[in-house]
Design a protein around this nucleic acid. Sequence first.
DNA 1: GAGTTCAGGATTGTATGCAATCCGTCTTTT
DNA 2: AAAAGACGGATTGCATACAATCCTGAACTC
Lengths: 234, 234
Amino acid sequence: MIFQTAPAASGEPIFKPDLVRRMLLSIFGGTWKAGDRLREENLAALFRVSRTPIREALQELAAVGLVELRPNCGALVASFGPREIEEIYEIRALLESEATRLACTDLPMEELQRLQGELTDLLSASPRSPAWSQRAWDADRQLHGLIATHCPNRRLAREIARYGAFVQIVRETVGNRDRAQEGALKEHQLIVAALLRRNPLKASEAMRLHIHQAGQTAVEAIRPLFAPPKGRKK
Amino acid sequence: MIFQTAPAASGEPIFKPDLVRRMLLSIFGGTWKAGDRLREENLAALFRVSRTPIREALQELAAVGLVELRPNCGALVASFGPREIEEIYEIRALLESEATRLACTDLPMEELQRLQGELTDLLSASPRSPAWSQRAWDADRQLHGLIATHCPNRRLAREIARYGAFVQIVRETVGNRDRAQEGALKEHQLIVAALLRRNPLKASEAMRLHIHQAGQTAVEAIRPLFAPPKGRKK
DNA sequence: GAGTTCAGGATTGTATGCAATCCGTCTTTT
DNA sequence: AAAAGACGGATTGCATACAATCCTGAACTC
């Protein structure tokens, strides 16, 4: 098991935001395999709710592409291997680099400088404790969030946010890898430096590279989970 | 999905997609204004169904961004003026230019040559009849469809298809404008020529410009509808 | 008179029951 | 015996009923 997957017969009722999230974790965590057919009644029993919220949760998951909803045939779990992860990061790289380019001139200097300081602190900190990892991820979220917030194309920001769930879950799956995090922080420094110089193209390209790197890390971390072909290919 | 109602494999009247499409047309057609609060019970009465399919349709519309779904507050019709159209075309330009770049080497020569011939025919045809417009739109769809089909990043193709609904509806709103269509055909020629030369960067850039131009046309066509807040709406 | 609180109505969220549909299997006919 | 059609179980799609929540407004207190 990759990480703590939800089910396990807790007697407490589940509320909708949690419901979607828990189903998402179950899907991504490997409770079900790609191509599995999810039956509403089973899910309803599993999560202790009726079929109605289950159906709505499935629709939300289908909108993000985690399940395929076929009329009168139920929900099929989408495939989610290294290839799909790579595709997602390719799209993220596109969207976020563009957002970086567009937001570059609007980003408040003081925020950028604060982030720059935080990045320097993090990289010079000696112990790579879990707390350090947490701070590093917070810094990552702050940078991406800052750009999304100041992106003049609101729909673009929205599309980026759509992929936030994936990123979050991939992170939880990948786990804390100091080496990768350190690399990410250095890439962040490049981005912030370009933003401070108000150089949209440089910043955009730095962001593209950063997400490309993150994608490679994620793919490498996930590949072993899919490497042993345990037969269930079809 | 939402538009491109099921490929007519079965001629039967499909209920739910039809419902979503009708709501979509109502929203975009001006039955409701931006910010209007849609109440499920009213919609249910209007479309003669119960609230359950209405809720599901609203979720689908929310997934595409046509309504904003707020917990316990119902569905708010999203704003849809020139600014939003511009944003959409900006994103389309990003996605489709990348898809063009990725698909460039895989596109079958014969299809490209056929399209090239069709474009030449269309541009040399003298009468700009409605039939000509139809053929021109078909050629447009074929080009974009061809690229999406051969795009190795399947999720990217899926995201592009998500915006197909907007494109379709914007077209119906904008109507056929010969001058714009003629320009689009010439841009198509540039794209196809680059694809035939297997030049991904040139093709990608040509696609980006093409969609940018189409976006400008759409914005100009839609702006007058929003300039005076008088009743172009019912 | 203004702010607060509580009650009532209105609206969304959830549960359950029923109808329509699909798939597997068995029977019947050629 | 093989193929085709029909029947039954299983599952999704829809409708209705109920519970929880939110907004409105008015009355009450300070």
